[in-house]
Design a binder for these strands. Structure first.
Ligand code: FES
Ligand code: FES
Lengths: 162, 162
DNA sequence: GGTTTTCGGATATGATATGTCCTTAATTCC
DNA sequence: GGAATTAAGGACATATCATATCCGAAAACC
């Protein structure tokens, strides 16, 4: 069970977009350069964010992406699910139904206890992500990233934001 | 991010082994038949459990698998990690290091804030699984599975247990 | 009209999950 | 002792998915 690397990309891109001034857009090219990622493929991740209505886009020169909501209205789970999908990590193939001791045509009333436990763990994972807002991340980063790097990064970004 | 189906197999097999009387073994063949699984491939999952010291084996006719510990000393996480591996679901490829605004040779003091949050969620998932014992599962199953199916299943199993 | 950008589809490649087959060594039964 | 049965593990085949690139269309800007 391993998450796609696009999750890391999307989260970092959202963190950058969160620091963008009102009304400005940042292009895929700039985001790819800033993170050292393949532009074409990063584009797929950003498209996922767009389909999930987390970001807005505009075309043409000076086009690109910006957040569709304020950073405190976006949580980690939304971003992760946008690129990773909403499917649960554990899928029950109902192997209990293959038990030869079962009467013909017997129908279970509940999902299997094994699956319920696995889904509960999955839900705990999602809950943790749901509780962290994008604004929390930005707050942590602005404390931890050295001030000069933080500042020069956003100068770099603003120079490229349309 | 999707767990292997072997996880479902291993958990169900452990639940069956937990109902085995002291000192008896159950073969891969019987476990595969009971769950309608490919014997050769299920064997790989059982080998993983064996390498994790969750089950013991013996060779020859009447050989097979039995639990290495009592069901209350085995939790879900152990079983899941045995077949799925212990690696975290989120891997940080340190894309922040590609930031062109970073001074040459700059070294981060902490893991990235993004990664820490993802790992926290991963830990919540593991914690949930760690808290559920195999004996809890057996308890739930013995309540939920209709008594006649439960009984005939273990008659079926005992007939094949060496 | 030419350039830049997002978007979606098509395609290629590599890794991983799934599944099968076969050999070896240990154990049991006859 | 010999035959049958079993787990262990390596080799191999296949399918699915993650990763990555490329291209054409439509929209926006100059
Ligand atoms: S039958 Fe799928 S988890 Fe039990
Ligand atoms: S650099 Fe990997 S999560 Fe931030």
């Amino acid at each position: 069970m391993i998450l796609k690397s696009q999750v890391e990309w999307a989260l970092h891109c959202c963190a950058i977009l969160a620091g963008l001034p009102e009304g400005r857009y940042l292009s895929t090219k700039a985001l790819a350069e800033l993170h050292g990622l393949p532009k074409e493929y990063l584009s797929k991740a950003l498209q996922s964010l767009s389909q999930a209505s987390l970001v807005e886009t505009t075309l043409g020169p000076s086009g690109g992406y910006r957040l569709a909501k304020t950073p405190s209205d976006i949580n980690f789970l939304e971003i992760v699910e946008a690129v990773e999908g909403k499917a649960r990590s554990f899928t029950c193939t109902n192997i209990r139904a293959n038990n030869p001791c079962r009467p013909e045509g017997y129908c279970d009333s509940k999902p299997c206890a094994v699956a319920r436990i696995m889904w509960e763990a999955d839900e705990a994972w999602r809950d943790t992500l749901r509780r962290v807002r994008l604004s929390d991340l930005v707050g942590t980063l602005s404390e931890e990233v050295p001030a000069d790097i933080w500042r020069s990064t956003f100068e770099w970004v603003l120079k490229r934001a349309g």
